Simulated scan of single mutants.
Amino acid sequence: MRSEKLYNVLEGFDFELLNDPEFKEDSVREEIVVPIVKALGYSAQQPFQIIRSRNLTHPFVSIGSQQKKINIIPDYLFEVNNTPAWILDAKSPLQSIVKSKHVEQAYSYAIHSEVRVDFFSLCNGKEFALYHIQKVDPIMYFSIKELSVYWGDLKKVLSPERILNKSNLELAKDLGLHLKRLGFDEFNSLIFPSVPITHIGQLDNNMFTTSSGTEIEGSRYAVSFDFDLTVLKQLIGKIPNEAIEKLLERDPKVRKSIAFADTVFYINIDCRVGEKFEENDKEIFLPLQINRIIS
């Protein structure tokens, strides 16, 4: 069985070494990561190539006028027939690989225009976490001691024959989630010019929402903008007055929705990344909160 083959690869490893303060990132790479990636089918040669510590020509991502520097060069970039496929970064056993800055940094590298891979992973010797760029939580997270149990599922995603298969995990791209994972939730003001408005929905008596699409560094994203009554009133003169009047009507039992038929209105938005994740039957998304409408 394949799980037995992988188990034999790590069978001679003494996991007590992970508690040794001298067992650091370089040891994790050599003793844990290298056997895994070779067993997956990658090597130093094409067509399924391991590329170590590739620098970026332009080590930052841009959102409007704001730039975020990428502070990571992952240990491994894997290519299939000269196409970037996924990345892996090794950490020491003392470092967290979930809900930490390391996840944010690996994500920023994975989505960079010079890389653009759907999957990124982190391993600290004790644990392995595999992420998809459109999911908040790991799609796989397990103890290395249980590697043989997860090996079949891991290979279905990361093997050279499967990794570029888009049917692996087809998800909509959400801009709010994208910005949060890049660390742009640290900014109180993000400017989006000429946002197309085709509809407005009511969330409750004091909150409203609209959604749109945008392109950033060659990738398309869906984006939701939430806003309160103060911002709604700032739309006077920018969208039809009858639409605003209808949305201002108070009826706690009715959630109103306005569509502008074949007309598109463009507005300039000053916003920030929201704090509350929303979820429907298909996806998790993070709305942006509008601070103000810019004249």
Rank of each mutant, 00 (worst) to 15 (best):
T209N: 14
A222Q: 12
R220S: 14
V231W: 09
P193S: 08
R220K: 12
L179N: 07
G237F: 07
K155V: 13
E161F: 05
N205K: 10
L235C: 10
R250V: 13
K238C: 08
L175Q: 07
F184R: 02
R250Y: 15
V223F: 02
Q234T: 03
L190K: 00
L169C: 10
E242K: 11
N205I: 11
I197C: 13
R250C: 05
L164Q: 03
G183N: 01
K233V: 04
L171C: 09
F192D: 06
E249K: 08
P240G: 09
T198Y: 06
P193I: 03
D153Q: 13
S219T: 13
D153I: 09
N188R: 07
F184D: 06
I216E: 02
E186R: 10
Y150D: 12
R220C: 08
F187C: 09
D174G: 07
N165E: 12
P193L: 02
F225V: 08
I191H: 12
T209I: 14
E215F: 08
I197R: 06
S219C: 11
A243S: 15
G213F: 12
V254L: 14
E217V: 04
P193W: 03
L182D: 06
L154T: 12
E161Y: 00
L232G: 07
L177R: 08
E215K: 11
I244W: 02
I191S: 03
S148Y: 08
P240C: 10
E242S: 14
K156W: 02
K156Q: 15
A243R: 00
P193K: 11
N165I: 11
D204C: 07
Y221G: 14
L248G: 00
T214M: 13
L147V: 11
E242Y: 13
R250N: 14
F184P: 01
P160H: 03
R220M: 12
F187M: 12
K155I: 11
Q202N: 04
S167M: 04
L182S: 10
G176E: 02
S211Y: 12
T210Y: 03
F187P: 00
L248N: 11
I200M: 07
D153C: 05
L182M: 12
L171A: 09
L147W: 01
S159Y: 05
L190D: 04
D226W: 09
K166C: 01
Y221D: 10
F227I: 05
N206Y: 09
G176I: 01
T230S: 14
D226A: 11
